[in-house]
Design a protein around this nucleic acid. Structure first.
Length: 111
DNA sequence: AACCTGACTTCGG
DNA sequence: TCCGAAGCCAGGT
């Protein structure tokens, strides 16, 4: 099939549930290439608006917003807080609590 | 086809 | 724990 990496990334992005966040690396991993974090950025820049992707739910590995002040930082933070995400000391999100943990489809995952 | 770029991540000091 | 350097990758020029 013609499933490009970009398509995979978009698909993953669309799955991030409201009230949760995901890291660039995590998305890349879920899309099939653990080291393609930078490609995630590319996709967001090129198709976020166009494809209604929840770009604001994507943050860096430290749990912080990568955008700069005056360049979307404020907006992203506001959107996340609006969904219940909490920013603690250092404007950092507690990934332990808010990171999206998708169910991996594999035998034994049943509960 | 080579070179550049980026909302990253990891590693070493 | 903090900071800088190096590594990485695919799409655009």
């Amino acid at each position: 099939m013609t499933t490009s990496f970009t398509e995979m990334i978009k698909a993953v992005l669309k799955k991030i549930p409201r009230g949760r966040v995901a890291t660039y690396g995590q998305i890349a991993r879920l899309a099939g290439n653990p080291r393609a974090a930078r490609q995630v950025v590319r996709v967001l820049n090129s198709s976020a608006e166009k494809d209604n992707l929840p770009w604001f739910r994507v943050i860096n590995s430290r749990g912080g917003i990568s955008l700069k002040r005056g360049q979307g930082y404020e907006l992203q933070k506001a959107l996340l807080e609006n969904e219940g995400i909490v920013f603690g000391i250092g404007e950092i999100v507690d990934l332990k609590k808010f990171q999206w943990k998708p169910r991996v489809k594999k035998a034994g995952t049943r509960k």
